[in-house]
Amino acid sequence: MACRTFGERLDDLLEGRLSPADRRAADEHLRSCAGCRELKSLVAEASVPVTPPADLLGAVLARTSGSACGSARTRLCDHIDRLLAPADDDLVRMHLDACGECAGLAARLARLAADLPPLAERDPGPRLVDEVLARTSRRPALPSRRAARFAAVWRRLAHRPRIAWEGAYVGSIIMVVLFGAANAPFADVPGRALVVVRAVQESLPADAARGEVPRIRLAVLSRWNAARALTSNLERRSSAAWDGLKKELGTVWGRFASGKATSGTNRTADTNEADRGDER
């Protein structure tokens, strides 16, 4: 076997893949060739795995891309949340196997992921529900609350002392805007109404108008009598109430006056007694 052929078959020889005939030929060549014996021993030594120096990786990274910790930390949260793609996840895992500092950080992040969600609820104590219910449940429904609020606003406005002046002012402005100005929408309405009344008055037959007068007078009289009956009824009731009130007031006043008189008498008796004591 030539040295070149031996070199080509050296790997197979070392890994035991040669046929018996080839192996015998290779052994014969080795016995006769010192160079190939040296080559075989070198290759055999190199194939034994050797632990690299601890600082080798750091030294290489320092001279090339720099530390990978920063890159790993940007992906660490996603690694904990299992959001990384498989390839990235493997890379982070490899880094964590080699880097104690990042592994510690990853462990703390994993613990935080478990410890933070339970903080979502805190006990506000037993009072909160009662306080909230007191402020909400007894309230009327939303539409009636709105109506009440609206009514309250109007009531507040109406109770202001200036409301009469303001109402008169606004009413006058509205009247002027609607009827008074030259180009107002209803500017000619009063004039037209006057014309219509005059036209009706002229077109109404005098006899028919005369016939209507007693009927109108009768209707007015009956309304007037009903109103008077109502007024006298009210008067009677109010005078009865006033009499009762006067009676009550009189009783109270009588009690007050008699009490005053009694205390005055006592006071006089006491004073007299004191005077007598002084004299003695």
Binding site: A120, R122, P124, L128, V129, L133, T136, S137, A141
Partner: peptide
């Protein structure tokens, strides 16, 4: 629909969350 009992239940269910955020 104006069910007071449901309102109380809702307050009880979410009071811890709301209080936690407020804290």
């Amino acid at each position: 629909q104006g069910d007071d009992l449901a309102w109380e239940g809702l307050v009880r269910r979410f009071q811890g969350r709301v209080y936690s955020v407020a804290c």
